[in-house]
């Protein structure tokens, strides 16, 4: 038993039991597939384009927390911090294919890319139409001219929300793909870590960081970021992070944005609100209009201390899909 104070049962059942708990909490709205590694909506309309999301586990409530009305139709779960295997992806794909095809939407990591690609090839052999949008919102993970090398982090949520709305209203896979791609292209995020989470199966921290230091740009699995320094105040770190986002995408005065201040696992609500206070001040100074604000634990890395900031720049089309009411375990909006 690893040396950690956590309430688990069998360490090898963490992912299965997490999804089982989530399916039970849905009050019949979600169903667990036979593999115990995928959840799907219990009732899916005929001819609807399917939206399948997923990735490594350990980031709860991402991904399965966003399966529901006007959101994703299915989520597949890999082991902790490891991409899901192709057989599970194919199982979920078959379960949500209603003849209109399935959009794969996931964070841009080598393991996810390969496993979802293998699954897409297998599904194509079964005559299921597949399109793929990889999310690469983390501005700290590669330069803008290498945007396809960037990782996907909490901005996943914005892309899933827009894509979910598009999949609910649009009839063709190509159209859902186009809108989801636009949402991805309009989303930017950056994180900061103050202390590591642990890898549950070994009880070891995902990275080392001295007690008085923080790292801006640290990835969801402890991938190194862009700048390590002594701890900074909330305002100072928010200034730094927001300026990295705003310089990455041409945001102009008058633009409407959605903001997500996301807890990476063990950051207090007070800290998140104090960070949001500063983000809000900066965005107003820049003349940006805030259309929607989300603050809380949406995409975590076990008990990592730290947070991320994500912005989605809206246009009329994206706003329409973003504004659809949603109902899932981790996101409910009327």
């Amino acid at each position: 038993m690893p040396n950690s104070k956590k309430f688990f049962n069998d360490l090898s059942s963490i992912v299965d039991e997490t999804l089982d708990g989530l399916a039970r909490a849905s009050n019949g709205k979600l169903r667990l597939l036979d593999s115990h590694r995928a959840v799907i909506v219990s009732a899916m309309p005929d001819h609807k384009v399917g939206l399948l999301i997923g990735g490594g586990s350990g980031h709860e409530p991402l991904f399965a927390g966003y399966v529901g009305k006007n959101l994703a139709d299915a989520a597949v779960a890999g082991n902790i911090f490891a991409a899901p295997t192709p057989d599970i992806i194919v199982e979920a794909t078959q379960a949500i294919d209603k003849g209109a095809g399935v959009l794969y939407l996931y964070g841009n990591y080598a393991g996810d890319n390969m496993n979802f690609d293998i699954a897409a090839e297998m599904a194509s052999e079964m005559n299921i139409l597949i399109k793929t949008v990889r999310i690469w919102d983390d501005v700290a993970s590669a330069a803008l001219d290498h945007i396809t090398d960037r990782r996907g982090i909490a901005g996943d949520l914005f892309v899933v929300k827009v894509a979910g709305g598009a999949a609910a209203l649009l009839g063709s896979l190509d159209e859902v793909y186009r809108v989801a791609s636009k949402a991805r292209d309009n989303t930017r995020s950056i994180g900061v870590a103050a202390a590591a989470g642990t890898f549950p199966e070994t009880g070891k921290p995902t990275f080392e960081l001295p007690d008085d230091e923080m790292e801006i740009g640290m990835g969801l699995h402890g991938e190194p970021g862009v700048s390590r320094s002594k701890m900074m105040t909330a305002d100072a770190v928010a200034n730094d992070m927001v300026s990295r986002i705003l310089s990455d995408l041409p945001f102009q005065a008058g633009d409407e944005v959605c903001v997500l201040v996301n807890d990476l696992g063990s950051t207090s609500s007070a800290e998140l609100l104090i960070i949001y206070r500063r983000v809000d001040q900066i965005l107003h100074q820049r003349g940006l209009k805030i259309h929607d604000t989300l603050i809380g634990s949406y995409c975590t890395s076990q008990e990592m201390a730290g947070f991320s900031i994500s912005l989605l720049k809206l246009d009329d089309e994206l706003r329409k899909y973003y504004d659809l009411p949603v109902d899932s375990l981790a996101l409910v909006k009327g």
């Binding site: 899901p84 295997t85 393991g111 390969m114 496993n115």
Partner: peptide, 14 residues
Amino acid sequence: MMSIGGASGAIFGT
């Protein structure tokens, strides 16, 4: 391939 997941499942499976 169907048990490891991650990059190495796809790579060593392949």
